[in-house]
């Protein structure tokens, strides 16, 4: 049975593809990082919507919480690394 939540899931998948365009195309490496940050935020939202779809929100919310913490640590680490590396080319 198709519900509205399937539609939400599909929309977020399409949005992730749009961000993937920016990640592959981006002129500088910082555009790619911003795109990846957007993708991981969408993945957190997608996990909670999947939890509602499968009626097991408690389990999926735990995964989303862990994913949020990983996303934050990873984005901050890459940002600090690039700041020290002095990369000019891309």
């Amino acid at each position: 049975m198709i519900t509205l939540y399937h539609f939400f899931f599909l929309t977020i998948t399409i949005l992730i593809l749009v961000y993937m365009y920016r990640v592959f195309r981006g002129p500088t490496v910082y555009d790619r990082i911003l795109g990846l940050n957007g993708i991981s935020t969408k993945a957190i939202i997608m996990l909670t919507i999947l939890g509602s779809l499968y009626e097991r929100l408690e389990m999926f919310v735990d995964i989303a919480l862990g994913y949020a913490v990983l996303n934050i640590i990873g984005g901050l680490a890459v940002g600090k690394y690039l700041e020290q590396k002095r990369t000019r080319e891309c």
Binding site: I44, A64, A68, I72, G75, L82
Partner: peptide, 21 residues
């Protein structure tokens, strides 16, 4: 809790990326 973490720490990530840029 997820919302609180995202609201506090996403600005920090974009600040770090843009400062590196």
């Amino acid at each position: 809790l997820i919302l609180l973490a995202l609201w506090h720490l996403n600005p920090v990530i974009s600040h770090a990326t843009l400062r590196a840029a």
